[in-house]
Amino acid sequence: MKILTVVGNRPQFVKSAPLSEALRAAGIDEVVVHTGQHWDDELSQVFFEELGLPEPTYRLDLRTADVEALTSPIREVVAAARPDLVLVLGDTNSTLAGARAAAEAGVPVAHVEAGLRSGDLSMPEERARIEVDRLATLLFCPDERSAETLALEGVAGRALVVGDVMADATLRFAPIARERVPPPHPPGTYVVATVHREANVRPERLRRIVEGLSRVDDAVVFPAHPRTASVLREEGIEIGPNLELREPLGYLAFASAASQARVIATDSGGLQKEAYWYRVPCVTTRPSTEWVDTVELGANVLVDDDPDSLVAAVRAASFPAEAPPLYGDGHAAERIARSLRRL
């Protein structure tokens, strides 16, 4: 069996590490195509080096997040590779382009991290999730809630609850990261912040989020996504002395910093989960989240872009002592590989 895996940005590189290993162990031939949606070395190549990912068979180097611009080249790769199935991960533009390209070529689609919904259709990620799930033949869900969502929507593909492959990667690499890379400050004394979503890098929202981060009592380690850094510069947005603006960190350095922070403040879906697995409280600068359980259990607080709410949430943040395991046990990739072998 030959599978074409489409990756294009940070979360997908992390998720694909345990998945590629499980596919190899199951005797499945995997062909990887890297779209180049993220092309900065610290957001792309470093993951292949640090996580030991196989070098992509196809590097498209498209340097764009435009779905239309991504779809046609991926379709050409599908035609050349002739896979039995195209596997896409998450909810990015590369995910959507990969699913569309496969569907146009008449090749079945498998979606890893299927069934997630935030309920906010203004988010391009939410629209991508819905469309990809409707195109997919196999839908690998992180939890029962996601599978129930697909059933309620009447999605035609087959849904399987397997857990979250990001949990596989986090549980494996976090101890290695802490061993190899010292934290930026003593553990538990600082905040790690990330801002990268399209809505949040609009100047007015970014200015409000940065205002809140600048008023936090702790040191705030802020590895800035390239487009976030660009808006900060172009708009002259001032940052407080506690806010440590940094270049993007390598995966292990970031995992070390985030897993030893007092609080994580983010708009990243993946980092909300990682915070939960690290048992670090999370403050999310979005009005909604697809990871609803983290909020319901008190491990995550939604503050949107309100500076006062952000400051108060960071100050009060604590991880619930009785928080149960969420989104799998670290063996999702193995379950996915076994399911594919049974086809």
Rank of each mutant, 00 (worst) to 15 (best):
D41T: 12
L19R: 09
D120P: 05
S72I: 15
E131P: 08
G36A: 07
R129A: 08
D120C: 04
L87Q: 13
Q37F: 12
A65F: 06
P83L: 08
T71R: 12
G36D: 08
G98K: 03
V6I: 12
R10Y: 14
E55F: 05
H34S: 12
R145F: 07
L135A: 01
L139R: 03
A101D: 02
V112P: 02
S72D: 15
Y58P: 12
G52I: 10
A110N: 03
E76H: 11
V7G: 00
D40N: 13
T35M: 11
V6C: 02
P18V: 06
L85H: 02
R10V: 02
A80K: 15
E21H: 10
A102T: 13
A97P: 00
A65S: 15
S20T: 03
R75D: 12
C141S: 10
V107K: 02
E125W: 02
G115Q: 05
L51D: 07
A105K: 03
L121Q: 14
G90M: 11
P54V: 06
Y58L: 07
V7M: 00
C141H: 11
E55M: 00
R127S: 07
A101R: 08
E126W: 01
D61P: 09
T35L: 13
A26N: 02
V107Y: 10
H34V: 01
G119K: 07
L138V: 05
